[in-house]
Simulated scan of single mutants.
Amino acid sequence: MRMRGRVRTGLRGWGGVGAMAVVCALALAFVLLLPLTQSHGDGGTETGGPGVVYARQAADDDPCLDPAIKSAPEKQTLSPSSADGPTIEKIKAREGEKRKLIVGVDQNSYRWGYRNPNGGPKADLEGFDIDLVHRIAQDILGDPNAVQFKAIPTNQRIPAIQKGRVDMVVRTMTINCTRVGQVAFSAPYFKTGQQVLAPKSSGIEGYGDTLAHKKICTAEGSTAFSKLDDDKKAGRLVASADITTTVPNQLDCLVRLQLGEVDAVVTDGALAASQAAQDPTVELKGTPFTTEYYGVAMKSDADDLVRRVNQILVDYRKDTTDGWQASYDRWLSATLAKDSAKSEPPPPQYLRTS
């Protein structure tokens, strides 16, 4: 069954402070884990060398101390399988209106997971991440519409998984070594990197000395903040840069930037490109200064669900009609590039064996 995927055209010119006020109002209205049911790679299967036995971390362990995990956290996932297991069986056992996949998503990241103000009375959630959610629901429950979306702030993604409020999070979530010790990840489904977003009139040129004496905004719990914090402590970021401004949701940084409360935003380049499309007064500065990968996040012990999602991703990448490339063309080609090569994750490696 093909997922619904219509190109929404009514958002042209949807930018500026006024539009952000609307978005923020929506975010406030839905921030408390709003449930909403809606309608709605070539990933190879190479194992990529000897397997790494992935021991789940004790509370006092730091997975980043493991060289294999630190150097390639995106490879610390389980091999694909279409088999059901206890986690999937519990999802399938839900009855009636509750027989849905419960997924944490964003609702205000333009072209990733956002509410289309022209999307009818329900202001449908749409975007690249949302397409993937529908594909997972189709495979597990046989219905792409069998989804209960919950709006999750950036800094609540991991708690929502650990406390069982959602089955998974599909929300532009970077795989890193710290998070690998907190949740389980699928293989990567997107490649990006940290980048600077600032007003076009700004003298900021990128991630370097032009950030001196500038106030930089990042989201709480984000890889952007971790990178800036680490770099400042290590002397890799100019000492006078102010990184104290953090917000619960990444989009709040754009609002702060538009209001003149900060001088720059640091976030994933893929998200920053969509925000630049919303507001023509800002632009990406310089080039990405990290390489990162988005993954689907699940509970650490949900092995069967991790394997199933990895199999879905393999099939999604191979689907030339309504798969990964079609979703990229629909949502991201206008803000990133027509050629998706720079955004495609590498062939997955499944180094976690337990």
Rank of each mutant, 00 (worst) to 15 (best):
C177G: 15
A160P: 10
M168N: 05
S186W: 00
N118I: 03
Y110D: 09
A93H: 07
I88K: 07
N116G: 07
Y189R: 04
D106G: 11
G113H: 03
K100P: 00
I91S: 00
R135G: 03
V166E: 05
A160I: 05
T87E: 15
V170M: 07
G85H: 12
V147Q: 00
I130M: 15
R171W: 08
L101W: 07
E89F: 01
F149K: 01
M168S: 11
I88Q: 05
K90V: 04
N116V: 05
G96P: 08
A123Y: 10
G193C: 02
N155W: 11
Q162N: 14
D143P: 04
D139P: 00
V133G: 03
A184Q: 07
Q107G: 13
R115P: 10
T192S: 13
R165W: 04
S109P: 02
I158N: 07
G85Q: 06
L125R: 06
I130P: 05
T178L: 14
P144C: 10
N118G: 14
H134S: 15
T87C: 10
F190M: 11
A151F: 12
P153Q: 04
R115E: 00
D143F: 00
S109V: 12
N118R: 11
A160Q: 11
K163T: 15
R157G: 04
P153H: 03
R165F: 08
G119I: 00
V180L: 15
A151N: 14
N145R: 13
G113W: 00
L101M: 05
I102A: 03
G113Y: 01
Q194W: 00
E97R: 02
R165Q: 07
D106E: 15
G96T: 00
F185P: 09
Q194A: 11
A93W: 05
N155F: 10
E89S: 10
F190V: 02
W112I: 12
G119R: 15
Y110I: 15
I91F: 09
D143I: 02
N116R: 14
K98Q: 09
D124W: 07
M168E: 00
Q162L: 13
N118A: 13
V105T: 10
L141S: 01
D143V: 02
R94Q: 12
L132Q: 05
G113Q: 10
T178M: 04
L101R: 02
G181K: 02
S109R: 15
G181R: 14
V183S: 08
E97Q: 06
W112T: 04
P188E: 00
D139T: 08
R111P: 03
D124C: 10
R179H: 15
E97W: 02
V103P: 06
K92P: 03
W112Q: 14
I152S: 07
Q182T: 14
I136P: 01
D106P: 09
N145I: 05
